[in-house]
Computed example of a mutant assay.
Amino acid sequence: MATSTHVKKPGWFTVNVFNRTVAWLTRRGLSVWGSRVLAVRGRKSGQWRTTPVNLLTVDGEQYLVAPRGHVQWTHNMRAAGGGELHLGKHVDVFTATEVADDDKVPLLRAYLKRWKAEVGVFFNGVGPDSPDTDLRRIAPDHPVFRITITN
């Protein structure tokens, strides 16, 4: 599905302060703007890998969007086909289906409407009010997975 190799690596502050703070709060049951801790098995090691993510809900469906592009959790998600979302002690087990680029436009728009202040820098100037053509142009750079809770 994805031919883009787009990746925006996080800076020191994001890795060492922001992500750790959001993950710490989320593990204690405090969702920060829809945050969850994603757990997915590593495609090579088989070990559980975790990262904070924003859970997007559109028309009753839930999605995970990768604002930084084709990062490790997206590769692991493709291999594993699902994972777990943690909020405090609550764990949702899910399967994941990758969304085709042509179907991402409304999802990317909704994601940017909700989290542009946090992640807008990763979308190369495209925002929630950008034309559909701009959102479609960047779609290959941002994997999106529809998740289905199975527990």
Rank of each mutant, 00 (worst) to 15 (best):
V126K: 10
L38R: 01
W73D: 02
L85G: 05
W73E: 02
N19K: 11
L38Q: 01
V105T: 11
R28F: 04
Q47C: 05
A117R: 15
A96V: 01
R28T: 00
G46T: 03
S35E: 00
R78G: 08
T97Y: 02
T97E: 09
Q72A: 10
D132T: 06
K113W: 06
G120I: 04
L107F: 07
K44D: 11
R41W: 04
R41E: 12
V40I: 06
G34Y: 05
R146P: 01
H142Q: 13
G82W: 12
P52E: 15
T51A: 13
D102Y: 04
R68P: 08
I138E: 11
G88P: 06
V37F: 00
E84Q: 14
L64Q: 04
K104G: 00
H70L: 12
A79D: 02
Y63I: 02
L64C: 07
F94V: 04
K104T: 06
D132H: 11
A139R: 06
A39H: 07
Q62T: 10
S130D: 07
W48H: 06
A96F: 04
V22T: 12
F123I: 15
G83I: 13
W33A: 13
V126C: 12
A79M: 02
A110N: 05
E84W: 15
G127K: 00
H70R: 14
L55A: 10
T95M: 03
H90E: 14
V40T: 05
R68L: 08
G125Y: 03
G42Y: 06
L135A: 11
K113R: 12
V53K: 10
V121S: 15
L30V: 12
G88M: 13
D129Q: 15
N124L: 14
D134R: 15
T51V: 15
T133E: 15
R114I: 07
D141A: 14
G34L: 03
K116L: 10
H90M: 12
V126M: 14
H142F: 13
V71Y: 13
W73R: 03
T21C: 08
D134Y: 03
T51Q: 12
F145H: 09
R114G: 02
E84C: 06
D103I: 07
R68W: 14
R78Q: 07
R36L: 01
A96M: 02
D101L: 01
R41I: 09
S31P: 01
L38F: 08
K104N: 02
A39E: 13
R43L: 04
L64Y: 06
V91L: 11
H70Y: 02
G29E: 03
R28K: 12
V119E: 14
K44Q: 13
H70M: 10
L85D: 03
V22C: 06
F123N: 05
L38S: 03
V126E: 08
D132Y: 08
V93G: 03
P52F: 14
V105D: 10
L85W: 01
A96K: 00
F18G: 00
A80C: 05
A100Y: 05
P106H: 08
G127T: 15
D129K: 15
G125L: 10
G42Q: 04
Q62Y: 09
D102N: 09
V105M: 07
G82Y: 07
T21D: 09
F123K: 05
E61G: 05
R137V: 02
E61T: 11
T74C: 09
